[in-house]
Design a protein around this nucleic acid. Structure first.
Lengths: 187, 187
DNA sequence: CGGCTTCTTGAAAAGTATCAAATATAGTGG
DNA sequence: CCACTATATTTGATACTTTTCAAGAAGCCG
């Protein structure tokens, strides 16, 4: 983990953020994207939800005293403790947050509907903060495949197609700068 | 609608239970299954979640004063007002309920992963109260197709296969009794 | 510069959707 | 209760999409 400070931890691509059953805080995703998984009886991890900038993760720990899901960084991301002023969340804000997670789950379901190209396009847009023309750091093809319920080869082909059509443009990166490649997303 | 009493309404297959934006109570699903949809900007309905016996639906109305989703009966179902003693839900029970909906959403996601036969099998088991060998009234093939992100023809073929393998057995129904056919589900 | 992982691409196989028809089921009014 | 009609389901044949298997290219790290 690469915490810049303990108050606003940063995670790089693929890092575990918290585990199911552990105790801890709830967090607001400041930037980047997070994958939430549920560990099943068979030991397998099943995607349960996604969170992007602005979303709250781990709110259930304030109810149950432990995380329900396992959180992993999909792309480089920064978190901030939630709620802001340490202590009890303001009236209803916890409820609002949980209700929001339910709405988010509906979007994730949509990532598994339709043809491969559409699905990958929807995922890219979700990660790019829902349609804003900005820059995205895409997760690994394997992660994208898990999320969309496609294979990584199919995702790779779809990303190639989006690049060819100009919807995704690899951003020029100062040479010698480390880190994953980012893309700009066209409308 | 075929409300038996206003306290414990019953809905038949396909009936609307409540609409997004409307005010109303939260309900516990006593029996049957319910589909929750989110109405998108384009006017389309997107599956957001499922609820089976024991689940609570419309809990967000206690936070926002209006339903977030649109609820439709998938199979004949009976509801009861929630929480039981009318008034404010007991401490934490609303939070627990919303957190439960999040866990349920993860199961629905799993219905869109893997091959057609597996998906339909998982759906049938979910509707049969998660593995209990009991009887199920299956929703229409069209509904099952919406949920699993398959076509109704593919769902039909999968149901036929489950019947042939003995996993699903049509239950003998007293002749002349109306209503949809129910199946018993083998382990 | 290797050695490693991830990504890309191709070709063949498998699975699903689509289109079309036949059958079954539910609903309605005689 | 039965015939009739509308709707839902099942099944088949074919077209399309995705997966699978395989190999090569590109990126990352010491």
């Amino acid at each position: 983990m690469q915490e810049s400070t303990s108050a606003s931890p940063a995670f790089s691509h693929g890092e575990r953020i918290f585990e199911a059953g552990a105790a801890g805080l709830a967090w607001r995703v400041v930037s980047g994207s997070v994958r939430l998984d549920r560990r099943e009886a068979d030991g397998q991890l099943w995607l349960a939800n996604l969170a992007v900038a602005g979303d709250i993760i781990g709110a259930e720990t304030l109810v149950f005293g432990a995380y329900t899901f396992e959180a992993t960084a999909l792309s480089p991301c920064v978190l901030a403790p939630w709620p802001e002023g340490d202590g009890v969340p303001a009236d209803n804000s916890l409820l609002t947050t949980l209700a929001g997670a339910e709405r988010r789950a509906a979007k994730v379901l949509a990532l598994r509907y339709g043809q491969a190209l559409e699905r990958v396009r929807r995922l890219v847009r979700l990660l790019a903060r829902d349609g804003e023309a900005g820059s995205v750091v895409l997760p690994s093809r394997r992660e994208m495949a898990d999320i969309t319920a496609l294979t990584l080869e199919t995702v790779s082909r779809a990303v190639s197609a989006l690049r060819q059509s100009g919807e995704l443009q690899p951003q020029r990166k100062p040479r010698g700068v480390a880190g994953p490649r980012s893309f700009s997303v066209a409308a």
